[in-house]
Write a protein that binds this DNA or RNA. Structure first.
Lengths: 168, 168
DNA sequence: GCAATGTGCTTCGGATTCGAAGCAACTGAT
DNA sequence: ATCAGTTGCTTCGAATCCGAAGCACATTGC
Protein backbone atom coordinates (compact mmCIF):
# COMPACT_ATOMS: atom_id res chain seq x y z
CA UNK A 1 0.00 0.00 0.00
CA UNK A 2 1.38 3.31 -1.04
CA UNK A 3 1.07 5.64 1.93
CA UNK A 4 -0.55 8.50 0.07
CA UNK A 5 -1.27 11.77 1.77
CA UNK A 6 -4.74 13.14 2.10
CA UNK A 7 -5.64 16.68 1.18
CA UNK A 8 -5.18 18.01 4.68
CA UNK A 9 -1.71 16.62 5.08
CA UNK A 10 -0.72 17.92 1.69
CA UNK A 11 -2.09 21.30 2.63
CA UNK A 12 -0.19 21.38 5.89
CA UNK A 13 3.03 20.39 4.19
CA UNK A 14 2.79 22.93 1.39
CA UNK A 15 1.69 25.67 3.71
CA UNK A 16 4.65 24.95 5.97
CA UNK A 17 7.16 25.12 3.17
CA UNK A 18 5.62 28.13 1.53
CA UNK A 19 5.14 30.06 4.72
CA UNK A 20 8.71 29.49 5.86
CA UNK A 21 10.08 30.39 2.43
CA UNK A 22 8.11 33.58 2.19
CA UNK A 23 8.98 34.57 5.71
CA UNK A 24 12.65 33.81 5.29
CA UNK A 25 12.71 35.79 2.11
CA UNK A 26 11.10 38.84 3.64
CA UNK A 27 13.28 38.70 6.72
CA UNK A 28 16.36 38.40 4.59
CA UNK A 29 15.59 41.68 2.86
CA UNK A 30 15.14 43.45 6.14
CA UNK A 31 18.35 42.04 7.60
CA UNK A 32 20.28 42.96 4.51
CA UNK A 33 19.12 46.54 4.60
CA UNK A 34 19.29 47.04 8.32
CA UNK A 35 22.63 45.44 9.02
CA UNK A 36 23.98 43.83 5.87
CA UNK A 37 23.48 40.36 7.29
CA UNK A 38 22.35 37.19 5.57
CA UNK A 39 19.79 35.06 7.31
CA UNK A 40 22.33 32.52 8.47
CA UNK A 41 24.60 35.18 9.80
CA UNK A 42 21.75 36.58 11.81
CA UNK A 43 20.87 33.14 13.12
CA UNK A 44 24.44 32.59 14.17
CA UNK A 45 24.72 35.91 15.97
CA UNK A 46 21.36 35.39 17.61
CA UNK A 47 22.34 31.93 18.76
CA UNK A 48 25.57 33.20 20.23
CA UNK A 49 23.92 36.20 21.80
CA UNK A 50 21.44 33.91 23.44
CA UNK A 51 24.11 31.69 24.94
CA UNK A 52 25.05 32.44 28.57
CA UNK A 53 28.71 32.84 27.70
CA UNK A 54 28.11 34.31 24.28
CA UNK A 55 30.04 31.47 22.71
CA UNK A 56 29.67 28.01 21.22
CA UNK A 57 31.62 25.35 19.46
CA UNK A 58 31.61 25.32 15.68
CA UNK A 59 29.91 21.97 15.42
CA UNK A 60 27.17 22.88 17.86
CA UNK A 61 26.54 26.07 15.98
CA UNK A 62 26.27 24.20 12.71
CA UNK A 63 23.81 21.72 14.15
CA UNK A 64 21.87 24.49 15.78
CA UNK A 65 21.15 26.36 12.59
CA UNK A 66 21.05 23.22 10.42
CA UNK A 67 24.04 24.04 8.30
CA UNK A 68 26.96 22.16 6.80
CA UNK A 69 30.29 22.31 8.62
CA UNK A 70 32.10 23.72 5.63
CA UNK A 71 29.42 26.31 5.19
CA UNK A 72 29.80 27.33 8.79
CA UNK A 73 33.55 27.66 8.42
CA UNK A 74 32.94 30.09 5.60
CA UNK A 75 30.42 32.16 7.54
CA UNK A 76 32.52 32.18 10.68
CA UNK A 77 35.43 33.58 8.71
CA UNK A 78 33.21 36.21 7.18
CA UNK A 79 31.81 37.27 10.53
CA UNK A 80 35.26 37.30 12.04
CA UNK A 81 36.54 39.58 9.30
CA UNK A 82 33.76 41.98 10.12
CA UNK A 83 34.67 41.79 13.77
CA UNK A 84 31.30 40.45 14.86
CA UNK A 85 32.72 37.28 16.37
CA UNK A 86 36.06 35.92 17.50
CA UNK A 87 37.38 32.41 17.16
CA UNK A 88 39.60 30.86 19.75
CA UNK A 89 41.10 27.48 20.35
CA UNK A 90 39.43 25.52 23.08
CA UNK A 91 41.72 24.73 25.99
CA UNK A 92 40.55 21.24 26.80
CA UNK A 93 40.24 20.07 23.23
CA UNK A 94 42.98 21.29 20.97
CA UNK A 95 41.03 20.88 17.72
CA UNK A 96 37.84 22.49 18.88
CA UNK A 97 37.13 26.13 18.00
CA UNK A 98 35.04 28.35 20.23
CA UNK A 99 33.17 31.12 18.49
CA UNK A 100 32.26 34.13 20.59
CA UNK A 101 30.13 37.14 19.76
CA UNK A 102 31.83 40.50 20.21
CA UNK A 103 30.36 43.74 21.52
CA UNK A 104 30.18 44.91 17.97
CA UNK A 105 28.35 41.77 17.08
CA UNK A 106 25.83 42.46 19.79
CA UNK A 107 25.53 46.00 18.53
CA UNK A 108 24.62 44.84 15.04
CA UNK A 109 22.18 42.38 16.53
CA UNK A 110 20.55 45.14 18.52
CA UNK A 111 20.41 47.31 15.45
CA UNK A 112 18.54 44.84 13.28
CA UNK A 113 16.33 43.36 15.96
CA UNK A 114 13.51 45.91 16.06
CA UNK A 115 13.01 45.67 12.32
CA UNK A 116 13.17 41.93 12.52
CA UNK A 117 10.46 41.82 15.12
CA UNK A 118 8.39 44.20 13.04
CA UNK A 119 8.53 41.94 10.00
CA UNK A 120 7.51 38.96 12.07
CA UNK A 121 4.62 40.88 13.49
CA UNK A 122 3.45 42.13 10.12
CA UNK A 123 3.82 38.93 8.18
CA UNK A 124 3.78 35.91 10.43
CA UNK A 125 1.67 36.93 13.40
CA UNK A 126 -0.67 39.53 11.95
CA UNK A 127 -3.37 37.10 10.86
CA UNK A 128 -3.09 34.93 13.97
CA UNK A 129 -4.76 35.09 17.33
CA UNK A 130 -2.95 34.61 20.58
CA UNK A 131 -4.35 31.10 20.82
CA UNK A 132 -3.27 30.33 17.28
CA UNK A 133 0.28 31.27 18.08
CA UNK A 134 0.34 29.08 21.15
CA UNK A 135 -1.06 26.17 19.23
CA UNK A 136 1.37 26.71 16.41
CA UNK A 137 4.29 26.81 18.81
CA UNK A 138 3.14 23.65 20.50
CA UNK A 139 2.66 21.64 17.34
CA UNK A 140 5.81 22.77 15.61
CA UNK A 141 7.90 22.31 18.71
CA UNK A 142 6.77 18.72 18.90
CA UNK A 143 7.69 17.87 15.34
CA UNK A 144 10.92 19.78 15.59
CA UNK A 145 11.96 17.84 18.66
CA UNK A 146 10.94 14.65 16.96
CA UNK A 147 13.05 15.46 13.93
CA UNK A 148 16.00 16.39 16.09
CA UNK A 149 15.92 13.05 17.81
CA UNK A 150 15.24 10.95 14.77
CA UNK A 151 18.31 9.44 13.06
CA UNK A 152 20.38 12.51 12.27
CA UNK A 153 22.19 10.42 9.70
CA UNK A 154 20.17 11.32 6.62
CA UNK A 155 17.52 9.07 5.23
CA UNK A 156 19.60 5.98 5.80
CA UNK A 157 16.99 3.38 4.93
CA UNK A 158 17.02 1.46 8.16
CA UNK A 159 18.57 -1.60 6.66
CA UNK A 160 18.32 -3.93 9.60
CA UNK A 161 20.30 -7.07 8.99
CA UNK A 162 19.60 -8.84 5.73
CA UNK A 163 23.12 -10.20 5.32
CA UNK A 164 22.38 -12.39 2.28
CA UNK A 165 22.09 -10.05 -0.72
CA UNK A 166 23.18 -6.66 0.55
CA UNK A 167 23.34 -5.31 -3.01
CA UNK A 168 24.43 -1.67 -2.93
CA UNK B 1 8.59 50.51 23.93
CA UNK B 2 10.31 48.19 21.53
CA UNK B 3 7.79 45.71 20.21
CA UNK B 4 9.48 42.70 21.74
CA UNK B 5 8.20 39.22 21.27
CA UNK B 6 7.03 37.13 24.15
CA UNK B 7 8.31 33.64 24.76
CA UNK B 8 5.48 31.97 22.92
CA UNK B 9 5.92 33.99 19.77
CA UNK B 10 9.63 33.44 19.82
CA UNK B 11 9.04 29.74 20.27
CA UNK B 12 6.62 29.59 17.37
CA UNK B 13 9.01 31.47 15.13
CA UNK B 14 12.05 29.38 15.94
CA UNK B 15 10.12 26.15 15.76
CA UNK B 16 8.81 27.14 12.34
CA UNK B 17 12.22 27.91 10.95
CA UNK B 18 13.88 24.91 12.52
CA UNK B 19 11.17 22.48 11.56
CA UNK B 20 11.12 23.60 7.96
CA UNK B 21 14.91 23.54 7.75
CA UNK B 22 15.17 20.06 9.19
CA UNK B 23 12.39 18.77 7.01
CA UNK B 24 13.78 20.34 3.87
CA UNK B 25 17.17 18.91 4.63
CA UNK B 26 15.86 15.40 5.15
CA UNK B 27 13.65 15.53 2.09
CA UNK B 28 16.54 16.77 0.01
CA UNK B 29 18.58 13.70 0.85
CA UNK B 30 15.75 11.42 -0.13
CA UNK B 31 15.12 13.23 -3.41
CA UNK B 32 18.78 13.19 -4.26
CA UNK B 33 19.07 9.47 -3.73
CA UNK B 34 15.76 8.48 -5.26
CA UNK B 35 15.85 10.63 -8.36
CA UNK B 36 18.85 12.94 -8.29
CA UNK B 37 16.65 15.97 -7.80
CA UNK B 38 17.25 19.05 -5.70
CA UNK B 39 14.40 20.33 -3.61
CA UNK B 40 13.58 23.15 -6.00
CA UNK B 41 13.60 20.84 -8.96
CA UNK B 42 11.15 18.61 -7.20
CA UNK B 43 8.96 21.56 -6.34
CA UNK B 44 8.97 22.67 -9.95
CA UNK B 45 8.08 19.26 -11.30
CA UNK B 46 5.41 18.82 -8.67
CA UNK B 47 3.93 22.22 -9.47
CA UNK B 48 3.84 21.43 -13.16
CA UNK B 49 2.49 17.97 -12.60
CA UNK B 50 -0.27 19.44 -10.54
CA UNK B 51 -1.29 21.93 -13.20
CA UNK B 52 -4.20 20.86 -15.42
CA UNK B 53 -2.18 21.36 -18.59
CA UNK B 54 1.11 20.31 -17.07
CA UNK B 55 2.57 23.68 -17.92
CA UNK B 56 3.13 27.17 -16.56
CA UNK B 57 4.84 30.41 -17.38
CA UNK B 58 8.34 30.97 -16.05
CA UNK B 59 7.34 33.91 -13.91
CA UNK B 60 4.40 32.15 -12.33
CA UNK B 61 6.60 29.18 -11.62
CA UNK B 62 9.17 31.38 -9.93
CA UNK B 63 6.59 33.08 -7.76
CA UNK B 64 5.01 29.75 -6.92
CA UNK B 65 8.13 28.27 -5.43
CA UNK B 66 9.49 31.58 -4.12
CA UNK B 67 12.55 31.74 -6.30
CA UNK B 68 14.44 34.39 -8.20
CA UNK B 69 13.82 34.66 -11.94
CA UNK B 70 17.45 34.11 -12.80
CA UNK B 71 17.54 31.10 -10.53
CA UNK B 72 14.54 29.66 -12.27
CA UNK B 73 16.13 30.16 -15.68
CA UNK B 74 19.05 28.12 -14.48
CA UNK B 75 16.90 25.31 -13.13
CA UNK B 76 14.65 25.25 -16.16
CA UNK B 77 17.68 24.80 -18.37
CA UNK B 78 18.94 22.02 -16.17
CA UNK B 79 15.62 20.22 -16.19
CA UNK B 80 15.31 20.66 -19.92
CA UNK B 81 18.73 19.13 -20.49
CA UNK B 82 17.59 16.11 -18.54
CA UNK B 83 14.46 15.96 -20.63
CA UNK B 84 12.12 16.38 -17.69
CA UNK B 85 10.49 19.52 -19.05
CA UNK B 86 10.22 21.35 -22.35
CA UNK B 87 10.22 25.07 -22.94
CA UNK B 88 8.19 26.62 -25.70
CA UNK B 89 7.44 30.12 -26.80
CA UNK B 90 3.99 31.28 -25.91
CA UNK B 91 1.81 32.06 -28.92
CA UNK B 92 0.00 35.10 -27.59
CA UNK B 93 2.99 36.71 -25.97
CA UNK B 94 6.18 36.41 -27.90
CA UNK B 95 8.51 36.86 -24.95
CA UNK B 96 6.76 34.50 -22.57
CA UNK B 97 8.09 30.98 -22.12
CA UNK B 98 5.82 28.09 -21.25
CA UNK B 99 7.42 25.27 -19.31
CA UNK B 100 5.79 21.86 -19.62
CA UNK B 101 6.52 18.65 -17.81
CA UNK B 102 7.33 15.66 -20.03
CA UNK B 103 6.33 12.05 -19.57
CA UNK B 104 9.80 11.39 -18.35
CA UNK B 105 9.40 14.19 -15.87
CA UNK B 106 6.24 12.60 -14.59
CA UNK B 107 8.03 9.29 -14.39
CA UNK B 108 10.75 10.74 -12.19
CA UNK B 109 8.12 12.40 -10.08
CA UNK B 110 6.32 9.10 -9.66
CA UNK B 111 9.57 7.41 -8.78
CA UNK B 112 10.50 9.73 -5.95
CA UNK B 113 7.03 10.28 -4.60
CA UNK B 114 6.58 7.23 -2.39
CA UNK B 115 9.83 7.90 -0.61
CA UNK B 116 8.93 11.53 -0.27
CA UNK B 117 5.65 10.67 1.35
CA UNK B 118 7.41 8.27 3.63
CA UNK B 119 9.80 10.92 4.89
CA UNK B 120 6.96 13.28 5.56
CA UNK B 121 5.13 10.62 7.48
CA UNK B 122 8.16 9.66 9.54
CA UNK B 123 9.39 13.14 10.31
CA UNK B 124 6.67 15.71 10.02
CA UNK B 125 3.48 13.84 10.80
CA UNK B 126 4.62 11.06 13.09
CA UNK B 127 4.28 13.01 16.33
CA UNK B 128 1.03 14.72 15.31
CA UNK B 129 -2.58 13.73 15.67
CA UNK B 130 -5.12 14.08 12.94
CA UNK B 131 -6.52 17.16 14.66
CA UNK B 132 -3.04 18.64 15.00
CA UNK B 133 -2.48 18.35 11.29
CA UNK B 134 -5.77 20.00 10.49
CA UNK B 135 -5.03 22.83 12.86
CA UNK B 136 -1.54 23.24 11.50
CA UNK B 137 -2.83 23.38 7.95
CA UNK B 138 -5.42 25.95 8.91
CA UNK B 139 -3.05 28.26 10.72
CA UNK B 140 -0.22 28.09 8.24
CA UNK B 141 -2.55 28.51 5.31
CA UNK B 142 -3.80 31.70 6.80
CA UNK B 143 -0.38 33.25 7.32
CA UNK B 144 0.78 32.04 3.95
CA UNK B 145 -2.13 33.68 2.21
CA UNK B 146 -1.54 36.80 4.22
CA UNK B 147 2.11 36.90 3.19
CA UNK B 148 1.22 36.29 -0.43
CA UNK B 149 -1.06 39.27 -0.46
CA UNK B 150 1.13 41.59 1.54
CA UNK B 151 3.36 43.91 -0.51
CA UNK B 152 5.49 41.47 -2.49
CA UNK B 153 7.88 44.33 -3.07
CA UNK B 154 10.43 43.57 -0.41
CA UNK B 155 10.51 45.21 2.98
CA UNK B 156 10.03 48.70 1.70
CA UNK B 157 10.69 50.51 4.96
CA UNK B 158 7.32 52.09 5.45
CA UNK B 159 8.66 55.60 5.68
CA UNK B 160 5.80 56.90 7.72
CA UNK B 161 6.37 60.55 8.29
CA UNK B 162 8.08 61.02 11.53
CA UNK B 163 5.39 60.48 14.12
CA UNK B 164 5.89 63.18 16.68
CA UNK B 165 5.70 61.11 19.81
CA UNK B 166 7.59 58.14 18.39
CA UNK B 167 7.49 55.30 20.91
CA UNK B 168 5.16 53.40 18.64
C1' DG C 1 2.81 55.80 -36.03
C1' DC C 2 6.47 56.17 -32.39
C1' DA C 3 8.70 57.30 -28.17
C1' DA C 4 8.28 56.07 -23.28
C1' DT C 5 7.30 52.46 -20.05
C1' DG C 6 6.44 48.02 -18.65
C1' DT C 7 7.00 43.00 -18.70
C1' DG C 8 9.40 38.34 -19.37
C1' DC C 9 13.42 36.08 -19.63
C1' DT C 10 18.40 35.51 -19.96
C1' DT C 11 23.22 36.67 -19.23
C1' DC C 12 26.83 38.10 -16.21
C1' DG C 13 29.63 38.38 -12.12
C1' DG C 14 30.21 37.46 -7.62
C1' DA C 15 28.79 35.29 -3.33
C1' DT C 16 27.34 31.05 -1.05
C1' DT C 17 26.63 26.22 -0.63
C1' DC C 18 27.67 21.58 0.06
C1' DG C 19 30.11 17.02 0.02
C1' DA C 20 34.41 14.76 -0.30
C1' DA C 21 38.97 14.69 1.01
C1' DG C 22 42.59 16.14 4.07
C1' DC C 23 44.68 17.26 8.71
C1' DA C 24 45.32 17.24 13.41
C1' DA C 25 43.95 16.04 17.96
C1' DC C 26 41.38 12.62 20.86
C1' DT C 27 39.97 7.81 22.24
C1' DG C 28 40.35 3.03 23.19
C1' DA C 29 42.08 -1.18 22.83
C1' DT C 30 46.03 -3.90 22.66
C1' DA D 1 53.16 3.50 23.96
C1' DT D 2 51.01 2.47 19.53
C1' DC D 3 47.66 1.56 15.98
C1' DA D 4 42.98 1.99 14.35
C1' DG D 5 38.93 4.47 14.49
C1' DT D 6 36.55 9.05 15.81
C1' DT D 7 35.84 13.66 15.91
C1' DG D 8 36.44 18.88 14.80
C1' DC D 9 37.52 21.87 11.48
C1' DT D 10 39.30 23.48 7.05
C1' DT D 11 40.38 23.27 2.13
C1' DC D 12 38.99 22.19 -2.48
C1' DG D 13 36.11 21.94 -6.48
C1' DA D 14 31.89 22.18 -8.51
C1' DA D 15 27.07 23.43 -8.32
C1' DT D 16 23.70 26.95 -7.16
C1' DC D 17 21.95 31.27 -6.13
C1' DC D 18 20.78 36.03 -6.47
C1' DG D 19 20.64 40.99 -8.10
C1' DA D 20 21.86 44.10 -11.68
C1' DA D 21 22.09 44.84 -16.38
C1' DG D 22 20.70 43.68 -20.98
C1' DC D 23 17.53 42.32 -24.67
C1' DA D 24 13.26 41.75 -27.05
C1' DC D 25 8.42 42.04 -27.23
C1' DA D 26 4.09 44.66 -25.52
C1' DT D 27 1.34 48.38 -24.18
C1' DT D 28 0.21 53.09 -23.63
C1' DG D 29 -0.01 57.97 -24.53
C1' DC D 30 0.70 61.45 -27.77
Amino acid sequence: MTPSLDATQLGAYFALIEASSLLKHAVEQQLREAGDLSYVQFQLLATLGDAPTGSRRMTDLADGVVYSRSGLTYQAQTLEKRGLVTRTQSSDDERSITVTITDEGRAVLAKVFPGHIAVLGDLLFAPLSRADIETLADILTRTRDHMRQTPPRSAEPRRRRKPTSAAE
